[in-house]
């Protein structure tokens, strides 16, 4: 199961490297971080210490969540309410 998880991470690595926007890269990092928690629990069976590795997985999931929230706060421009309600021209998506 762990090997097939690692193989399935390759397309997400492709999206991280080639991603057109920065948000794609953060999304891929988030997905890989969540799957790393699963892989940590599976690695625990190899060492016969699953109870210890489950704690590692809890810490890793927490760090992953905090990292995603911090990055999205960093990219989010906080504008005041008056400017937010003003109609502003949004640029169209580049195809």
């Amino acid at each position: 199961m762990g090997a097939s998880l690692l193989v399935l991470m390759i397309p997400i690595l492709y999206r991280i490297i080639m991603g057109p926007t920065g948000f794609d890269r953060i999304l891929g990092v988030n997905v890989i971080g969540t799957k790393t928690a699963v892989i940590l629990v599976i690695i625990g069976t190899l060492f016969d210490r699953v109870d210890m590795f489950v704690d590692f997985a809890i810490a890793y999931a927490l760090l992953n969540f905090v990292g995603a929230i911090v990055v999205s706060r960093y990219f989010n421009r906080t504008v005041p309410l008056q400017e937010m309600e003003k109609p502003k021209p949004r640029r169209r998506a580049k195809v």
Binding site: T21, F23, L27, A68, I69, V71, S72, F75, N76
Partner: peptide, 14 residues
């Protein structure tokens, strides 16, 4: 976290 990322992307004119 994916909601926060989506909102950040929408505010960033994506």
């Amino acid at each position: 976290s994916s909601h926060a990322l989506m909102r950040a992307a929408f505010e960033d004119d994506e």
